[in-house]
Amino acid sequence: MTWRVRIADSAGAAAGLLVLAFALAWVGYKAFGAGFGVNGGVPDWIRVTLSGLTLAGLYFVIASGFTLIFGLMRVVNMAHGSLYLLGAYAAFEFQQHQFVSWGWGVVLSTLLVGFFGAVMHQLFLRWNQGQELRQALITIALAFIFGDQMLAYFGGAQHYVRPPDALEGNADLGIFCNTGGIFAGCLTFPWFRFVAIGAAVVVALGLVVVLKKTRFGMIVRGGVDDGAMVSALGVNIQAANALAFFIGSALAGLGGALAGVFLVIAPGEDADFLLKALVVVIVGGMGSLGGAALGALALGMIETWAPQYLPGAWSNYSILLTFLLLVFVLSVRPFGLFGRAT
């Protein structure tokens, strides 16, 4: 049986790589085939790719919290999308009532959602530690309840968070300048999206430092491998769990508060972002930060390149590419790119 499985695996891997190579070549042809001038495909390519990086950064911020919680506690937090939406609504609410400036609004929303998640963990997930399926079902139920409560309070209308004045408008990149006509000016990109990319990089660096350099990080890394042993060594694993749940939820809240500026805040987005987090960690492997980064990059790029570069009649089908991504990764690595069978 083994050799047949191996052949099937290799065939799956080869097919996946072939499709990937073809997709990249196609995008390259579309982007660079018409030359590097102002009228070529390059300006659009830069704009779309930067948008993709923004999305990838946002997905990474959200999915890194998801994967951190799973890595340490084996809790699949199906309410993660609700925490994201709660963060977005909190940022919106702080701004509506003009309690604080935008920046403090983001900080407060992040902390609020982190606190909310920690309370959720203490009340609903601490007593059934290790019963993964039960916890998954409980968090699904909580997601259902939170979603309806947010719908009842904030209504079904779409909301937006206004960016601060300093970050409003577009950055002038100073390249690919058009002269004359209504399109005069250089290639531009919204300032705020650079902030989102920067936030993702800061979060990534911060998590790496915390995980590699601090005592808490050591506990988390130990707990990922063998939680019972860490506990037996006298480490207060419950405190570490609570802190990890706080940080993981806070990251979802931060993602929501940032996304409120350039994406819509509306009921249903919680399910959408739960899907993104799931796809990112299934592709990257549960509990792996590097995997989350790679998965977020793959998903962000697919979601922005596909509508842009697929032939017009096919662009509706771009969601299927997400499915293909899952299929190819799982056919080769059933636990994700960096995942381990634990």
């Binding site: 399910a271 739960l274 899907l275 799931l278 796809v279 299934i282 499915f323 899952l326 799982l330």
Partner: peptide, 8 residues
């Protein structure tokens, strides 16, 4: 995985 497939 099945949840992701369902949402897709």
């Amino acid at each position: 995985l099945t949840l992701a497939v369902g949402v897709i």
